Simulated scan of single mutants.
Amino acid sequence: MRALRLESLTVSQLHELDDLYRTTRDVRVRTRAQMILLMAEQGVAVSDVAAIVRESGETVRRWVHRYEAEGIHGLSDAPRSGKPAKAGTDYRERLVELVRRRPRALDLPFSMWTAARLADYLPEETGLRMSVASIHRLLRAADLGFGRPQHTISSPDPDYTVKKKAVELARDRLRPGSVFYYADEFNISWYPTLRPMWGSKGQQVMIPTPMQPTRRYGLGAVDWHSGQTVVLTRPHKRRREVAEGRGGRGGAARRGRAPRPALPPNLQPVAEPD
Rank of each mutant, 00 (worst) to 15 (best):
L4G: 05
S12P: 00
S12D: 14
H15R: 14
D18S: 12
T24W: 06
R25A: 11
A40G: 01
E41I: 03
Q42K: 14
V44N: 03
V46S: 04
D48I: 01
A51Y: 00
A51R: 13
I52T: 15
I52K: 15
V53Y: 05
R62K: 14
W63E: 08
V64Q: 00
H65S: 10
H65C: 01
I72Q: 11
I72T: 15
S76F: 06
D77N: 08
P84M: 00
K86P: 05
E93P: 08
V96E: 09
V96A: 11
V99I: 02
R102L: 15
R102N: 15
P103Q: 05
A105R: 09
F110V: 13
S111R: 10
M112K: 12
L118Q: 01
A119K: 01
D120N: 11
G127S: 04
G127R: 02
M130R: 07
S131L: 04
I135A: 02
A141C: 02
F146I: 11
H151I: 01
S154N: 06
S155G: 10
T161H: 12
L174Q: 06
R175L: 13
G177N: 05
G177D: 05
F180M: 14
Y182D: 08
D184N: 03
I188H: 05
S189V: 02
Y191W: 12
L194W: 05
M197D: 15
G202I: 00
I207F: 10
P210E: 09
P213I: 04
T214V: 13
R216P: 04
V231L: 09
R234H: 07
H236A: 13
E241H: 08
E241C: 00
A252S: 10
R255P: 07
A258E: 06
P261G: 04
A262E: 15
L263S: 02
P269C: 01
A271L: 10
